[in-house]
Design a protein around this nucleic acid. Sequence first.
DNA 1: TAAATATATCGCAATATTACGATATATTTT
DNA 2: AAAATATATCGTAATATTGCGATATATTTA
Lengths: 111, 111
Amino acid sequence: MGVTKNDLFTKSQNEIALAAKAFAHPARIAILEFLLKSNSCINGDLVNELGLAQATISQHLRELKDIGIIQGTIEGTKVNYCINPSRWAEIKEKFNNIFNEYNSPSSNDCC
Amino acid sequence: MGVTKNDLFTKSQNEIALAAKAFAHPARIAILEFLLKSNSCINGDLVNELGLAQATISQHLRELKDIGIIQGTIEGTKVNYCINPSRWAEIKEKFNNIFNEYNSPSSNDCC
DNA sequence: TAAATATATCGCAATATTACGATATATTTT
DNA sequence: AAAATATATCGTAATATTGCGATATATTTA
């Protein structure tokens, strides 16, 4: 028990759930929002900005990188992080597909 | 340790993270997708459809209801669940705002 | 009213996530 | 080469999530 039964669900369902995890923690939202306005940043920028420990920020960055929504390039002793354009577009489309599949009824009393 | 430091983040960041949790598990994606195509359903429908135990489905439904993305109305011994139109629109907009805030560069090498 | 039907909640076990200090690694500067 | 700088990883503790059997609750049917 306690382990998600991924085999019960479709590949698509598992993929969307994985992508959603990028947004499922406020620290990761903060990181993504920071990247949206600054285009790119390093771990240290985020430590100053968010007030979480360096190890914690590094861990969140790794999760975002594992999901693929950000990428990092080494520049000397620093690592420059930015959004991964193609993966961003892919995730955006997945969510749009779900959101647009719903046709809101005229009344709020749908059930 | 181990507890999310919500006080470090903005109300908006915490709200988006909360909404994202609706999508962060394949069973909840499956439930939402089932509701999108069938308009409304009861707990029992989902137990047959997904292959998870009744208690587990009930738990996921409660989470979705707590987030507000679905609503349930009692009908005899059954509870009819459906998507909450206004909340759906609200969450859709939150995500669209983030997704549209990003202007993809011409090249994939942004950093 | 007893049985059937449907859902919610409780309690527990297992796994996952969050957070961070300590430490390892790797590059640049002095 | 030593010191400084920046990040990643390890190990650990605490909390959260997932899943389900058992049970409670509530309505409908026989």
